[in-house]
Amino acid sequence: MNEAMRKPNDFKSGVKPIWCPGCGDYGVLSALTKAFARLNCAPEKIAVVSGIGCAARIPAYVNAYGLHGLHGRALPAAAGLKLARPELTVIAAGGDGDIYSIGGNHFIHACRRNVDMTLIVMDNRIYGMTKGQPSPTTEPDYPTHLYPAGTHVQPLDGMSLALVAGANFVARAFTGDPNDLAEIIVEAIRHPGFSVIEVLSPCVTFRPEEREWKHQIARHALTPAGSVAEALAAVASAPELSTGIVWKGNRPPYTGPGDQAGKRVQDVLDSFVA
């Protein structure tokens, strides 16, 4: 067997996930390992950075460098790593609560900063790890233990927010089709700048009705738009459970502030002389 060929299994760590059987996140793990094999990345050149939540457990299951940090803070940690070590392939991953709620400010600024990395948001429209409280993407009338009559709060539209805030690649995928997701991940990683993939990933424990998503997905109803405005219109008019790549922008990625006309330490000492 050719040594250079890498298989998806080469990117599994061997740690067995604690996700519930039936959880959509297994499909994301499968897709991620397929994408890495397809890109033929060396595992040591990849870093998966996450926050807290069910989805954020993913780094430990991937055979790559991982940072399982704080709730909501995957994106700044990932940005710091990518800016400091630009040769690495950096993936940030988390759930809808982690990325859109507690990490919402970082999400906006990651989009506008446009560091060359890929974010995977596993959206199950619920907080799974804390037992089913409503998340920013939960429907207003969806009953939970916390709000038996629903939240009456409008769900957050992560795709549109990403587009408006300046993400350079925006897509939605469904975890029930890991091969399609893998291809979208491959494109996202290859695309320069900040890429956002929102993955519809059912929570079979707290939202068992999401198992039905597999029959409701509008596969590839989204296609790359010609402008951010067209992409926004496409997201707004497409069926709710649409997948596909809706935006591939051409903003140059941020690699740091560049040359700031400074002097090196040895040369700056003169400036202190009175």
């Binding site: 870093a47 950075v49 940072l67 704080l70 700044p76 710091g80 070590r85 400010n105 600024h109």
Partner: peptide, 17 residues
């Protein structure tokens, strides 16, 4: 950074690197 939460987590990321 966008805030101090980002500051500390960015440097944790870079130092991890």
């Amino acid at each position: 950074a966008e805030d101090e939460l980002a500051s500390i987590n960015m440097i944790i990321g870079s130092s991890f690197g």
